[in-house]
Nucleic acid binder design. Structure first.
Lengths: 122, 122
DNA sequence: CCGCCCTTTAGGATTCATTCCTAATTTATT
DNA sequence: AATAAATTAGGAATGAATCCTAAAGGGCGG
């Protein structure tokens, strides 16, 4: 475990925000100015492959990273892109899985809405 | 309606495959060799904004386009990326909407599995 | 049909997120 | 501490998608 990876991991675990690689890079560089962008991407990929964090692909925007490892849906503001975790009763996919034969290995569910801030503006 | 846009639209409507912009570009150029890549992207964007087709963002891969306009989940092979439409009983997302206050404007649900071809190989 | 104006195109440059490359450094191992 | 293996910094490269500009198209009012 290198200092770099630890720092990146800690930053993700420290807050519930779903940050982009670039945001994590900026935050991390405040503490370790020599950190390279490529190192951030490589370690994020590594942490995802290890199952320590989750990668969230966003439509027409850079990917975000989620410290919550339990599979769960996301609530996404369609205007500003803000993301919230939706931890909900398990077995959510039961109806789908039943219909499909139980061979589902995972899912990605995004629900779109207007966040309060964006609703106010509109 | 220009010849270019019509051609792109027809290609999408002609088959259930979920093609990438690049694939559509190649197919279209067989019929119209002067067609520019940018024209394909611009028209795909236009058709999506008009609600005539749907854009499907794929993880770590170029977006794909779907001729089916009804909102519906997708079944995605986690190995080869092949996509299938899942037209299912409406109201499957009712439980979510209820929990969230009915202000959901849309959703994107991908279910991952191994397609038969990929399961054979593994 | 003709001219005019607005739209769209081709072709290529550009952007932006992400990955890749390499030599140098760090970390782990004994 | 010595050596081997893994990781890093820094920057180049990639690839999907967007943007730019001058030229071509298309459509409608006459």
């Amino acid at each position: 475990m290198t200092r770099q990876r630890q720092l990146i991991f800690d930053l993700i675990m420290a807050a519930p925000e779903h940050r982009t690689a670039e945001e994590i890079y900026d935050l991390a560089r405040a503490e370790m100015p020599s950190l390279a962008r490529g190192t951030v991407y490589r370690n994020l990929g590594l942490l995802v492959r290890e199952g320590q964090i989750r990668k969230l692909e966003m439509p027409d925007a850079p990917a975000r990273y989620d410290r919550e490892r339990r599979p769960h849906p996301h609530l996404v503001c369609e205007r500003c892109g803000k993301v919230e975790d939706l931890i909900m009763p398990d077995g959510l996919l039961r109806p789908f899985a039943l219909e499909l034969g139980e061979d589902i290995t995972g899912y990605d569910l995004k629900l779109y809405h207007l966040c309060p801030a964006c609703r106010k503006k509109a």
